[in-house]
Amino acid sequence: MTQQTNRICDISIVNKEMVEIPKGKIELRDDRTKQKWTVELESFLLSKFPVTQDLYYEITKASPSAFQGNRRPVETVTWKDAVLFCNSLSNQTGLNPCYSFDAEEEITFDQTAEGFRLPTEAEWEYACKAGTKGTRYGELELIAWYKANSAQATHNVGLKEPNAWGIYDMLGNVWEWCSDIYDETVYGSYRIFRGGGWCDEERGCLSTNRRRSHPTSFKIDDLGFRIARNRIKMVKSD
Rank of each mutant, 00 (worst) to 15 (best):
residue 71 R to Y: 15
residue 178 C to W: 01
residue 96 N to D: 11
residue 210 R to G: 02
residue 232 I to N: 14
residue 77 V to C: 06
residue 45 L to G: 09
residue 222 D to N: 14
residue 126 Y to W: 10
residue 54 D to F: 08
residue 17 E to N: 12
residue 84 L to T: 13
residue 101 F to Q: 07
residue 197 G to Q: 02
residue 94 G to E: 09
residue 29 R to M: 11
residue 3 Q to G: 06
residue 213 S to W: 10
residue 84 L to Q: 12
residue 228 A to N: 04
residue 118 L to M: 07
residue 106 E to Q: 15
residue 111 Q to R: 15
residue 206 L to F: 07
residue 209 N to T: 09
residue 61 K to T: 06
residue 53 Q to L: 08
residue 206 L to P: 00
residue 81 D to F: 02
residue 172 G to P: 01
residue 17 E to M: 13
residue 109 F to L: 08
residue 85 F to P: 01
residue 222 D to W: 04
residue 64 P to R: 07
residue 12 S to Y: 07
residue 101 F to H: 05
residue 136 R to H: 05
residue 178 C to T: 14
residue 4 Q to E: 10
residue 27 E to C: 14
residue 192 I to W: 00
residue 25 K to P: 01
residue 89 L to Q: 02
residue 167 I to K: 04
residue 127 A to D: 00
residue 58 E to K: 11
residue 203 R to N: 12
residue 202 E to A: 12
residue 29 R to Y: 11
residue 209 N to L: 13
residue 53 Q to K: 04
residue 93 T to H: 06
residue 154 T to D: 00
residue 185 T to C: 04
residue 150 S to Q: 06
residue 18 M to D: 02
residue 89 L to H: 04
residue 166 G to Y: 08
residue 83 V to W: 04
residue 148 A to P: 02
residue 147 K to M: 09
residue 142 L to W: 07
residue 193 F to D: 00
residue 9 C to F: 15
residue 10 D to W: 08
residue 107 I to R: 00
residue 220 I to H: 08
residue 150 S to V: 00
residue 154 T to G: 02
residue 180 D to L: 03
residue 148 A to G: 09
residue 193 F to N: 05
residue 122 A to K: 03
residue 210 R to T: 14
residue 72 R to Y: 12
residue 62 A to I: 13
residue 156 N to S: 15
residue 179 S to M: 11
residue 16 K to L: 07
residue 134 G to Y: 03
residue 118 L to C: 06
residue 79 W to F: 03
residue 8 I to Q: 13
residue 223 L to P: 01
residue 117 R to C: 11
residue 100 S to P: 10
residue 73 P to R: 02
residue 69 G to H: 06
residue 175 W to A: 04
residue 33 T to A: 06
residue 100 S to F: 07
residue 32 R to G: 10
residue 152 Q to V: 09
residue 143 I to P: 03
residue 229 R to M: 15
residue 189 S to Q: 10
residue 143 I to N: 00
